[in-house]
């Protein structure tokens, strides 16, 4: 197992950087999801005519974090 890991890291040492990046991005996605959920809940508590714009902004925020994860998985 140790030998296999050593071989992988010798072949692709960047994995040592990439795996923590992916973990951090997953945490960031969970954060943006919470922001989106909270925005949706608060928009129901206080409904203003611009609430939909605010909800759209938080949705874009969430989708951007997903895009960043996909970018990291494909290009790094």
């Amino acid at each position: 197992m140790g030998e296999l890991l050593r071989n992988i890291l010798q072949e692709s040492p960047f994995l040592l950087i990439k795996i923590p990046i992916i973990i951090l991005l997953l945490l960031y996605i969970s954060y943006t999801f919470i922001v989106m959920r909270q925005t949706s809940i608060m928009s129901k508590i206080v409904e203003i005519d611009v609430s939909q714009t605010v909800q759209l902004l938080s949705l874009i925020h969430f989708l951007t974090s997903l895009f960043l994860l996909v970018y990291a998985l494909i290009f790094l």
Binding site: S12, P13, F14, I17, M42, L57, T64, S65, F75
Partner: peptide
């Protein structure tokens, strides 16, 4: 051994986190 796309990833992450900071403060 870092891929060439790492720089663009860093710049992209920087701007997305900045936008995230601004949106959170605004909300």
């Amino acid at each position: 051994f870092f891929p060439s796309s790492f720089t663009s990833f860093l710049i992209l992450t920087w701007y997305i986190l900045t936008a995230s900071f601004l949106l959170t403060e605004y909300l």
